[in-house]
Design a binder for these strands. Structure first.
Length: 441
RNA sequence: GUGGCUAUAGUUUAGUGGUAAAACUCAGGUUUGUGGAACCUGUAUCGAGAGUUCAAUUCUCUCUAGCCACCCCA
């Protein structure tokens, strides 16, 4: 048998066994962890009354042009022309899709709308570890609630997912900021034009990556004489210090109260690992209120796990009136990384409960009958189909991590009794055909 | 998209201008109704293509893929 990453074809052309650039193959073990994570997502979302939706990976390219602009669509998405001359994009994110779906049935849907989805998303980028061309992302959105009860519910849902995955409060942190406050600081307090404000936002976003000197210099370059005031504010050590440096007006205190309320309500629910972070910006412009991120506290993995915020204006791209919305996304790759870091990944276990070893082709029919009965009882059973020796059959079952085996040969057919063997402990137990399934469950 | 590093059995890694070594894994075999052991055997056109050379896995170039940084972050 020739082993090679290339398979020879008739015309001498060679095909590689490697997956397409930037995408992953999911072997059964990989599917196991994928399913585990998705099952946690589904369980928690459904426990909060959220309903699952999905859509096609294909969307008209214009959907993203409206929100993200020509450049992003051309350079960072998979966009192509179909045979009918339509421009098609493989969805790079779910938010435009869900906004489209909600806007389309706005009249008949009953708000508040609690929706979630685990879409696979595509982006045309140079792949790196943890940043591939295809990934999956949990999307949770709550539409139609304009007060902070939306923030509280959705953030506590995110918290519940972390807990269900086995993480402790000390392992992660929920960082919060308010776009309203930041906009006030940049527009009203600093009176910046749009371009400078945007540059400042990007700089703040990068603050933790830069040395404090580089950050300060960057700010000085952009703000000149106003930079001292701004730096004092942005370098505040905590929430109280930060707000003490803001002007005391009704307008400001409303915005402060909003985020204070969210944190207080979360605390009442037992969620205390929240922290105000004035440097939390989130990349996109469409956020209009509270933004949040779940951060891994482990220094090796210091990254945001979930991130989201309020986007009350987004649905207006469909010409509809505004629908308030709050939501977040959580990528599968970072979750996998975290589970590995904290050693929380469950051991692989196949769905198969029992492997039937056969001592010759003449027992195949009888084995099939037994298997069929057990399947009717709800067990997952696979049968040997090879001529391998009994030892090798057991080895193969064990390698597949199937927990139980029975062997079928002359004795079993005669007596109707089986030696049920637990492959992990090596224990054997004599059971009858009827009691087989009971002993496995 | 820009720059840097890397590519040797399935995996992790040695090594050399004269067609390659180890460990583990896998497949086959030996003990013929119960595995995890032992032993034997096998598996690499040294990522692909081109060039320099008597000779290239080794040097050079191109491509491909991976990793890292930047860009971007949905």
């Amino acid at each position: 048998m020739k082993k090679n990453t290339n398979i020879r074809l008739i015309a001498g052309q060679e095909l590689s066994t490697e997956a397409y650039k930037g995408v992953r193959d999911f072997y059964p073990e990989d599917m196991f962890t994928q399913n585990y994570i998705f099952d946690v997502f589904k369980k928690i979302c459904e426990s909060y009354g959220y309903n699952q939706y999905d859509a096609s990976v294909l969307e008209p390219a214009d959907l993203y042009r409206a929100k993200s602009g020509e450049e992003i669509v051309n350079e960072q998405t998979y966009t192509f022309t179909d045979r009918g001359d339509r421009e098609v994009t493989l969805r790079p994110e779910m938010t435009p899709t869900v906004a489209r779906m909600v806007a389309a049935r706005k009249q008949e849907l009953s708000f508040p709308l609690r929706w979630y989805s685990i879409p696979n998303l595509f982006r045309y980028e140079k792949p790196q570890k943890g940043r591939l061309r295809e990934h999956w992302q949990l999307n949770v959105d709550l539409f139609g609630v304009s007060d902070t009860s939306a923030e509280v519910e959705v953030i506590s849902l995110a918290y519940s997912i972390m807990k269900e995955l086995g993480l402790k409060d000390a392992d992660f942190q929920i960082r919060l900021n308010s776009r309203k406050i930041m906009n006030y600081v940049l527009n009203d307090l600093m009176s910046l034009d749009e371009v400078t404000a945007k540059k400042i936002c990007k700089l703040i976003d990068k603050k933790n990556k830069l040395s404090s000197k580089d950050f300060d210099n960057g700010i000085k370059e952009l703000l000149s004489e106003k930079s001292a005031e701004f730096l004092t504010l942005i370098n505040s050590q905590n929430f109280e210090e930060f707000i003490s440096r803001l002007p005391k007006s009704l307008e400001v205190s409303e915005k402060i109260e909003e985020i204070r309320n969210v944190m207080a309500s979360l605390e009442k629910l037992g969620i205390t690992n929240t922290v105000f972070d004035q440097t939390l910006m989130r990349g996109f412009d469409y956020y209009t209120g509270i933004v949040f991120e779940v951060y891994d506290n482990n220094p090796d993995n210091h990254r945001s796990v979930f991130g989201g915020g309020r986007y009350d204006d987004l649905l207006s791209i469909f010409g509809d009136e505004k629908i308030p919305a709050f939501g977040f996304g959580a990528g599968d790759v970072i979750i996998k990384d975290i589970l590995e870091t904290y050693k929380l990944m469950p051991m692989y276990k196949p769905k198969t409960n029992l492997y039937i070893c056969t001592l010759g082709k003449e027992y195949q029919e009888y084995s099939n009958e037994i298997a069929q009965k057990l399947r009717d009882d709800g067990l997952n059973v696979s049968i040997n189909l090879t001529d391998k020796k009994i030892g090798d059959q057991i080895k193969s079952a064990d390698k597949q991590k199937i927990p139980y085996i029975i062997c079928i040969g002359e004795d079993e057919v005669k007596k109707g009794e089986f030696k049920l063997k637990n492959l992990k402990t090596g224990e054997e137990k004599v059971v009858t055909e009827v009691s087989l399934s009971k002993n496995i469950k």
